[in-house]
C-alpha cells in the first residue's frame, strides 16, 4: 500500500498526452497502481484476521546483509575499477563472510575462476568486459 502511494505520487507530475487524441501515458500504470493498492489493502485485511504465524528465521541475517553489501559494492565499482579486480575482491569477500578462512586457497580459486570467465567472454564470445582504472 505504501509502495502504491509512492508510485501514484510519481504519476501525478506527468505532463499528460502530447496530442488531444493521445492516451495519457500514465493512465495504464495508474490503473495498475490502484489495483496494487486495493489488493495490498485486501491482503493486509486478511493478515489482521488470520492467526499470526511465528517464524524463527529472520528476513535478513548478518550474512545475507553482508553478501548484499558486497554485491552492491561490486556492481557500483565493476565498471570504474574494472572487472578483474572487483570480481576477485567480491569472490574473496563473499567467501570470507561465509566463514571460509583458508586465504591462499580462496585467493587461488577466485583468481583462476575470474581469469576463466574473462577469457571465455573476451576471446570466445567476443564480449568486452570493463577494464576500468585497475583492470
Amino acid at each position: 500500500m505504501g509502495l502504491s502511494a509512492v508510485l501514484y505520487a510519481q504519476t501525478t507530475g506527468s505532463a499528460g498526452p502530447v496530442f488531444v487524441d493521445d492516451i495519457d501515458p500514465m493512465q495504464y500504470p495508474r490503473a495498475l497502481i490502484l489495483l496494487l493498492g486495493a489488493m495490498g489493502a485486501l491482503l493486509a485485511g486478511k493478515g489482521f484476521l488470520a492467526r499470526a504465524e511465528r517464524t524463527d528465521m529472520p528476513l535478513f541475517t548478518r550474512h545475507t546483509l553482508g553478501v548484499m553489501a558486497v554485491l552492491i559494492l561490486y556492481a557500483a565499482f565493476f565498471i570504474t575499477l574494472g572487472f578483474f579486480i572487483t570480481s576477485v575482491l567480491a569472490c574473496l569477500g563473499i567467501a570470507l563472510i561465509m566463514g571460509y578462512r583458508r586465504l591462499p586457497l580462496l585467493a587461488g580459486a577466485s583468481v583462476l575462476s575470474v581469469v576463466l570467465i574473462w577469457l571465455m567472454y573476451v576471446y570466445i564470445l567476443r564480449i568486452p568486459l570493463p577494464s576500468g582504472s585497475l583492470f
Binding site: V67, I72, P130
Partner: peptide, 30 residues
C-alpha cells in the same frame, strides 16, 4: 555450496552486464 554461490553471483553480474554492456542492467539485476 560456497563455490556455487560465488559462481552464481559472478556469472549473474557478468551475464547481466554482457547483454548491453550497461551498469544499469547490473543494478536492475541486483
Amino acid at each position: 555450496a560456497h563455490y556455487l554461490l560465488v559462481s552464481i553471483m559472478t556469472m549473474g553480474v557478468v551475464g547481466a552486464y554482457s547483454i548491453n554492456s550497461s551498469a544499469m542492467d547490473v543494478l536492475s539485476m541486483l
